[in-house]
Design a binder for these strands. Structure first.
Length: 563
RNA sequence: UGGGGCGUCGCCAAGCGGUAAGGCACUGGAUUUUGAUUCCAGCAUACCCAGGUUCGAAUCCUGGCGCCCCAGCCA
């Protein structure tokens, strides 16, 4: 079965199929619940495509919900960036944009219900004491001395917590479950903590008590009528508490939490903490630096939503943890860009070529196809004259037969133009090649004249018409495949493995004139080289392109092996 | 055994008791005015290991081994 005839299936979809079949569920409602404390990355894309994709395929809904219960770390910049990125991927939450903070009042009332039923209590242990009482992984914890307060006292104390009578850290509301549970998450987890002086981006200073994620999440899901609450593996241990909350309040809805493995990608890091560090410590130029695995970054790099979705489809959804090779991601972008990116010519490292037998006052406007395999993409005009630039690496004074480019005394085809032959090499006093003199073969456009066999095809740009451009060559951010694991193993910082070659900026490139019309974000294939897109800095006289991903280069691999 | 998970080709991943899909990577070869694309062919007698059940096991059972997660008033 091929990929296209085989719709994406995974264990979560199988569970949903069974739930629908058995009648356990009659609809499908999912949600994507980011905390607005950073930008979304490729790992989030996996979750977005999963959640929104399921909603689409099952004729259900997917809510966008900000998990904003920790105001100290969250802000509106992130709230806005996240919405931008989800939209960019092509998904719509319609009017279903929610915030966990929308439910602060509900959450508070359910807490009251738990207290009244003897299921929650106000604890005065400080953070350190709480940790001590919790026990360890192998030893049970012990009950807090405040565990057996009366309902009335708990109600009174919680009310005072809410009204601001206590300082930060002096009291918390805890669930009363089992301090000896082998699952640490069930040892009377904290439900509410006190936070004075923080301004929440949604609720301002209205509250001074904030609910914890583990308490908030199941209730938010239930209030939204979520059927399947999909999250990552590290929450597996939290599921018993997720269920406990819903089983002990009168919310009347019980979504099912299902966990899947996070995405790990070679040559990058995927934790928000580390990405934040790269930004805040200036290792990269912001969250949208094209080297970042953030959606904002890869978008600026030139990755397309279609490529991202294809990638998410190909990596699949399972509970096993692994690390995906960069080649898989790169193949996905190439696959999409190969179809949609118009072809252009650009010389990154120019070598001047004077065509001695071409009239110096003549200019031809050649009509070239925008895509050799797709006529519907049209054509554009490219000027040709007696002075052009070719790539330095496309010329050698001497070379063996395998070198399919220009060699002194031999001829080569200029892409979509004439065949030229190198007659002379002009050098300066230091033996550096300054320019080369060639002669062109008239009537050689379109086919090879009798007896002429060019070694290969090289790209070019008219020296008199070409436009100077800045080209940013991006490569993998890290020098090692698994920077996290490596840093751990060698007791170093993950930043020690940042690649010195992640960005090379070229400022003397020459591109064909039509490229000045590009809009930021437009993708092109610079023939024989790579896919590029116009950067955000492009325009208003500046010509700036980012390399998205190189073309597959089997020649480079063969050369590599030779060494 | 403190508890919870995971282990199928180099990487990702189907498989759900009937005799190992697919993608990426890789290797050949064809076509090519991008050393690109496209196309064709090859690529796990084998499913962490060892026993067992069965006519038949990657799939069931038992026992091992390896790896990941959990002791935030973070999410």
């Amino acid at each position: 079965m091929s990929e296209t005839t085989n719709p994406p299936t995974n264990f979560i979809r199988q569970i949903i199929d069974e739930d629908l079949r058995s009648g356990k569920r009659t609809n499908v409602a999912t949600r994507f619940p980011p905390e607005p404390n950073g930008y979304l990355h490729i790992g989030h894309a996996k979750s977005i495509v999963l959640n929104f994709g399921i909603a689409e395929d099952y004729n259900g809904t997917c809510n966008l919900r900000f998990d904003d219960t920790n105001p100290g770390k969250e802000n509106m910049e992130f709230v806005e960036a996240i919405q931008r990125d989800v939209k960019w991927l092509g998904y719509s939450w319609d009017e279903r944009l929610y915030y966990a903070s929308n439910y602060f009042q509900n959450l508070y009332e359910f807490a009251l219900e738990l207290i009244k039923n003897g299921k929650a209590y106000v604890c005065e242990l400080n953070a350190e004491q709480t940790r001590e009482y919790r026990g360890t992984l192998k030893e049970p914890g012990k009950d807090s001395p405040y565990r057996s307060r009366s309902v009335a006292e708990n109600l009174d104390l919680f009310e005072k917590m809410k009204s601001g009578e206590f300082e930060d850290g002096t009291k918390v509301l805890r669930a009363k479950i089992d301090m000896t549970s082998p699952n640490i998450n069930m040892r009377d987890p904290v439900l509410y903590r006190i936070r004075h002086g923080v301004i929440h981006h949604q609720t301002g200073a209205e509250w001074c008590i904030y609910p914890m994620y583990d308490y908030t999440h199941p209730i938010s899901d239930a209030l939204e009528g979520i059927t399947h609450s999909l999250c990552t593996l590290e929450f597996e241990d939290h599921r018993p508490f997720y269920d406990w909350v819903l089983d002990n309040i009168s919310v009347g809805c019980h979504p099912q939490q299902i966990e899947f493995s996070r995405l790990n990608l070679e040559y990058t890091v995927m934790s928000k903490r580390k990405l934040t560090q790269l930004v805040s410590e200036g290792f990269v130029n912001g969250w949208d630096d094209p080297r970042m695995p953030t959606l904002a970054g890869i978008r600026r790099r030139g990755y397309t939503p279609a490529a991202m979705k294809l990638f998410c489809q190909r990596i699949g959804i399972t509970k096993s943890e692994g690390i995906v090779e960069m080649e898989l991601l790169e193949n996905c972008v190439r696959e999409d860009l190969n179809i949609i990116a118009p072809r252009r010519m650009a010389v990154l490292d120019p070598l001047k070529v004077v065509i001695t037998n071409y009239p110096a006052d003549q200019v031809e406007q050649l009509t070239l196809p925008n895509h050799p395999q797709d006529e519907s993409m049209g054509t554009r005009l490219v000027p040709f004259c007696n002075e052009i630039y070719i790539e330095q690496e496309d010329f050698l004074e001497e070379a063996n037969k395998k070198y399919k480019r220009l060699v002194k005394g031999d001829c080569v085809r200029l892409r979509n133009a004439y065949i030229i032959q190198c007659d002379e090499v002009v050098k300066d006093d230091y033996d550096n090649i300054v320019e080369i003199h060639c002669s062109y073969i008239p009537d050689s456009i379109g086919s090879n004249p009798e007896g002429i066999k060019p070694r290969g095809v090289i790209h070019w740009v008219s020296a008199r018409h070409g436009v100077v451009a800045e080209v940013r060559l991006y490569d993998r951010l890290f020098a090692v495949a698994a920077p996290d694991a490596m840093a751990n193993k060698e007791d170093k910082a993950f930043t020690d493995y940042l690649s010195p070659d992640s960005l090379h900026t070229l400022t003397h490139c020459v591109v064909e004139p039509s490229l000045t019309d590009a809009q930021p974000g437009d993708s092109y294939q610079f023939e024989r080289q790579a896919y590029f897109c116009a950067d955000l800095d492009h325009g208003n006289g500046k010509v700036v392109f980012n390399r998205t991903v190189t073309l597959r280069d089997t020649w480079a691999k063969i050369e590599q092996k030779g060494r």
